[in-house]
Amino acid sequence: MSVPSAVTDKHLRWGFHKCFNCIRKLGYKWNHKRVYRVYCELKLNLRVKRKQRIAPRRTEKLSVPNKLGKCWSMDFISDSSRNQRRFRTFNVIDDFNCEALSIDIAVSLPADRISRYLDKLTKYHSYPLKIRVNN
């Protein structure tokens, strides 16, 4: 068994440079070209996955509603109490006057509870023309 394969059997995800430095520390005086040739013959060279570029988002200016109840913003906020118990809040805000229409606080907020909560909210306020959310 050759030295590079002994090193790479122990450390599977190491690349060439880490293997070469380890071999040099073991006392072998081989140059990098010789180690790389053996490294490639053993088919240890791994394909490097490049990061995919994400197209930049175009930011749009937020439109300011000119009437009450035209646009609502919804958001979830997470926090914890003094005894480290985590809870979440579901906030609905009217964008015209920045009034909080409702805040629902619970440890768990499943989707069916949110939909029931929004139905209950529309009994007191009319349906908005637009709803904004973060994602």
Results as ranks from 00 to 15, higher is better:
A106H: 10
N91P: 00
A6I: 12
V3N: 04
R37F: 10
I114S: 10
K67M: 14
R113G: 05
R24L: 05
K120G: 10
R34L: 14
S115D: 05
D75V: 00
C22R: 13
I54A: 13
L46K: 09
Y39K: 03
P65H: 07
S102Q: 06
Y39L: 02
V48T: 04
R82V: 12
A6S: 11
H11Y: 07
S78M: 06
K29A: 10
H32I: 12
Q52E: 09
L101N: 00
A106N: 13
T89Y: 05
C19G: 03
D119M: 10
E41I: 09
L26K: 06
P128L: 03
G15N: 06
I131W: 03
L44H: 06
S5G: 07
Y117A: 09
L46C: 10
R132Q: 01
D9V: 12
R132A: 00
D104S: 10
V92I: 01
N31Y: 04
K29F: 08
F76R: 04
C19P: 03
Y28Q: 09
L12E: 12
K70L: 12
E60G: 08
E41H: 11
L118C: 07
K70I: 06
E41M: 13
L46Y: 12
A106E: 11
K43W: 01
K25D: 07
A111F: 05
A111S: 08
V38I: 11
L121P: 01
T122P: 00
C71M: 11
V64C: 08
T59W: 15
K67E: 14
V133T: 15
Q52V: 09
C19I: 06
R82M: 14
N31C: 11
Y124N: 13
S78I: 11
P110R: 03
W72G: 00
E99Q: 00
K123T: 12
L68K: 10
M1T: 06
F90I: 02
K130G: 07
C40R: 04
P128M: 07
V64F: 04
V35I: 09
L109W: 01
S73D: 05
S108I: 10
R88H: 04
I93F: 03
N83A: 04
H17F: 09
I131A: 03
R58F: 06
I105D: 05
S115L: 15
C98D: 09
R57N: 14
Y36H: 15
V35S: 00
G15L: 01
S5V: 10
G15F: 04
K61Q: 15
R37L: 06
K25T: 08
E60P: 03
R86A: 15
K10C: 13
C98G: 05
A100H: 09
